[in-house]
């Protein structure tokens, strides 16, 4: 349930950034390697934002797929279902993660002031 801690951190950032203005949407980038369960995240957000100035705001999650770069054969792999960190070209395990570890609050949508 690190989704709950995530929502508490998100709340802190949004509350500080919005400075009293009404927030309608909160855009996040979440890499697939962060093991975030989207429904849990949404549920936790309703719990954390309930009866606060951010109640009713919407989390919009941009899920970033895992891409790997193989250090042996230099090819790029995009993982689809399983998070098996192997190069699909040469089966090598010596890969670096290019994307998929993001956990960023990218932007807010604010209602008209």
């Amino acid at each position: 349930m690190h989704e709950l801690s995530m929502c508490e951190s998100i709340f802190e950032i949004v509350d500080r950034t919005a400075a009293g203005r009404t927030v309608t949407a909160i855009h996040l980038q979440v890499g697939q390697l962060r093991q975030v369960v989207p429904d849990t995240l949404t549920y936790c957000w309703t719990v954390v934002s309930d009866q606060t100035t951010l109640a009713g705001s919407q989390l919009v999650v941009d899920t970033v797929p895992v891409t790997l770069r193989c250090r042996d054969c230099s090819s790029t792999t995009t993982l689809t279902d399983e998070l098996l960190l192997l190069c699909t070209q040469c089966d090598g395990a010596d890969v670096s993660v290019t994307t998929g570890e993001e956990l960023v609050l990218t932007s807010l949508e604010l209602a008209e002031a």
């Binding site: 950032i13 956990l103 609050l105």
Partner: peptide, 18 residues
């Protein structure tokens, strides 16, 4: 939500404070 919302770029790591 479509009554002229303003988009504010934040680009802050969610666990930045941690």
């Amino acid at each position: 939500y479509q009554t002229g919302p303003e988009r504010v770029v934040v680009l802050e790591r969610i666990f930045g404070e941690n």
